[in-house]
Design a binder for these strands. Sequence first.
DNA 1: AACCTGGATGTTAGCGGTAACGTTAGCGCT
DNA 2: AGCGCTAACGTTACCGCTAACATCCAGGTT
Lengths: 347, 347
Amino acid sequence: MSLDPMKRPSGWATMSDVAQAAGVSLMTVSRVYKNSSAVSAATRERVLAEGERLGFVPNLLAGNLASGRSAMIGIVVPSLRNSNNASSIQGMADCLRQSAYQFMITNVGYSLEEEAAAVEAFIRRRPDGLVLTGTRHSEETYGLLRGSGLPVVEVWETEGPLIDMAAGFRNHDAGGDIARHLIARGYDRIGYIDYPVPGLRRYDARREGALAALREAGLPADLVVSPQHAADAAEDSASFRGGARGLAQLLEKGDVRAVLCASDLLAIGVIFEAQRRGLGVPDDLAVAGFGDFEIAAEIPPGLTTIRTHGYQMGWAAADMLIARIEGRPLDAPVRDVGYSLVSRGSA
Amino acid sequence: MSLDPMKRPSGWATMSDVAQAAGVSLMTVSRVYKNSSAVSAATRERVLAEGERLGFVPNLLAGNLASGRSAMIGIVVPSLRNSNNASSIQGMADCLRQSAYQFMITNVGYSLEEEAAAVEAFIRRRPDGLVLTGTRHSEETYGLLRGSGLPVVEVWETEGPLIDMAAGFRNHDAGGDIARHLIARGYDRIGYIDYPVPGLRRYDARREGALAALREAGLPADLVVSPQHAADAAEDSASFRGGARGLAQLLEKGDVRAVLCASDLLAIGVIFEAQRRGLGVPDDLAVAGFGDFEIAAEIPPGLTTIRTHGYQMGWAAADMLIARIEGRPLDAPVRDVGYSLVSRGSA
DNA sequence: AACCTGGATGTTAGCGGTAACGTTAGCGCT
DNA sequence: AGCGCTAACGTTACCGCTAACATCCAGGTT
């Protein structure tokens, strides 16, 4: 055994070094750093002191390899730019930190192929669990997850077949509620500006919920636009600019007195475009969003919207994941964190 | 050697399993999955086929332990909610992906203690490099980094003593430029709404640059407020609401014709508050921001601001880190990605 | 005195890969 | 034929840690 830590390939002090310096066995050092209780206070002190002196930092790669647990989870999100899921990531981060887990995060746009690649890349590092966004995945992803047997939580949707667990809310109901809110206020010609990325269940559900409510009230349900623009990445259309374009498209389609948007960003864009066109909100045009981003409360006259509980959702997702990892029983594999309608000046 | 993969503790097929199935040695399988060239095409095919059949996914924990390299880097950011550094994260992510690196990310608020804890947590996983935000760190952090000998890039600031490398821009110059822009437009009583988190070099530099320009022009440089609010987390004050509060404070301080803000979020908040107070922008009040977030271009009448090149900065940071990790020579340890003044309707 | 107990510590055998070096066979060259 | 050379593969010795089991010893029981 090499006695000189400087001669080690890694350059790091190892548990052996600490053990030797403290005059105890390797295993005792391991116990100290794992906070295992079966070490006397005196020994623990001595080991920690020597560890500190040698600048010892435990190597989790080795520990994980030996123990088969990594205390790490992987998170797959569409985008890191989106402040929408930033809250949910924050919720996960806070919950995970509390339980001494770390996480890796990868953004995959809205591509199922990239998602599959990300999942495989994660699995190579043998995480203890995974969080995926949405409930639509490629066959390859399903195969990898099946093969891994890893705990998985899907977030933001509870619609669709689930892999394992999910945290989210009923997008269909939320879409219906916000539509009924406008209907109750007496608006009749109500348009809908959709999220410009096709095939996402949560946005489909929002739209269908809203349109169903319109139909039920005997109102036209065909004033729907999706402000996609060839020049932009799909994601860039899900934004202020997209909302502005959406309003323009809607006004071309015919007379519109109110606009429902699949996202607050779109709704804010609509308000800006209305300002530019000299339309008063809500007098000439009522606007409602989805998400209750910070700006919704701040922009005059206040944006009526659906508040999603992203932070709580993230926390719930992490909590379920940890419970499953640590073998604790789960009350239910799906956690509905709900939503709430926030009525402000815009509608 | 256990021949039954199902009996393995991990449940995963290993290289040995693949080697046995393909009738080659362990080392050949390793070479195939590392894309090492010294394997014949026929053998490679056979190994990959067997690997696929067995659902083999290489265990990087083991590989990293043996090789001493992890192909992973750690990123420390103040907040994940801030879309400001979301761009820079995206830049890093894209650059890292290209070079087959993964990253872990941790948010630490503006606490130097949490930062130190995050750095240690990263080091336990033996990353190949680290990215830190800002150039102010605790002694503990410095000690850990010195001991690790890891490549480190600091981002968003180039002011202050550097650990190793940095990517950012001259905040002092940018602050001066935006102030001079307002001065050139004839505004005299110019207020400054600061970032409500004390002790961050980049915001100090922005403010000092701006105030220096005001003094140089013989204008009052004491109309400075920091919209901190006891009820909020510091971070929550760095936002629309903070901007609204800042304008209120500024107007109490005296007559103000123009407002410089340390962040676009604050500036947008100022515009909203001006709207609520019936003040026209820019006729009654000119406003300038910092960051050029998407909303700056969309909000009427357009926000004059400093565009920071977050994405390029993130890319540059990752690029430098990888160069250092892979032993390629670096042209310079500090990369200045610059900034640009964007003049719109608000000032 | 012999026995049991249980907390504190040590020993052994891996976890699943990779680096470094060793071996083999086929080929061209003198 | 004998030699060296190289591509293609195999062997061995770890990387730094933990699970599982073994050991030791003080103190209480019977």
